[in-house]
Amino acid sequence: MNAIRHTLTQLGNAVTRRLTRLGVASRFFIYLLWHSGTAFQRFRLTIREVYFAGVLSLIIILVSGLFVGMVLGLQGYDTLQRYGSSEALGVLVALSLVRELGPVVAGLLFASRAGSAITAEIGLMKATEQISAMEMMAVDPIARVVAPRFWAGVISMPLLAALFSAMGIFGGYLVGVQLIGVDPGAFWSQMQAAVDIRQDVMNGVIKSVVFGIAVTWIAVFEGYDAPPTAEGVSGATTRTVVTGSLAILALDFMLTALMFTGGNAK
């Protein structure tokens, strides 16, 4: 009897703790949005963070995009040529990149490359009491430190996802047309006929904006919420990557279900 009671108490405790944390994170998010005026008034702060979150992620995004596209080209060709429709390679590569892989893989890379850096930086600022020092000087650390990083992430993420998709399509073109010898005219024209601006490209951009918001929100919150110890910062960095990646996958499923079933269910 006691054991059951103990388990139930633990379960309840775990649920309440998570819910409380979610509530704190939501209030933090609202406060952040409310105080992000500085991030735009002193836009230089945000530009600096775009450099750290976006520009420094370029290499990994471009290289992964190229290779994902090349692998899609090889694998797609292998399957499609069995059905004698290797000209549809462009459609396969473009649709899978623009709709899914571009936003999702770019988001996962962004979470591990830029999200972890944001968390570690803010966490360390807190551990070395730079945040408290700002508060002493009557500078709002959320407006001065957190908001520019948040907006930089939100700005960078769609651009990175677009670069990933474009690079991937280029990789698919390299392998499909240059290496294997699919007809370039069919490759591009079938792609253009099948990819719809609003349905595919726009939805991909919307997805990447949503992922950008989610990942950077998690990153800045984990950093700001981290216990001010070395262990705390390392734990927060890990949580950013894990929670951020899981959030991307869950959100992707929900967004896909919303965006791409409406037309077909008719």
Binding site: I47, V50, L58, A94, V98, P158, L159, V201
Partner: peptide
């Protein structure tokens, strides 16, 4: 930093333009 951010944003916009013009057919839309 400004230069690199400018390059990054320009590249991103070009990628978006590429996606809408060359991959999706903006002309037919």
């Amino acid at each position: 930093i400004d230069l690199w951010v400018g390059v990054f944003v320009a590249m991103g916009l070009i990628a978006l333009l590429f996606l809408s013009l060359k991959v999706g057919n903006l002309a037919s839309f």
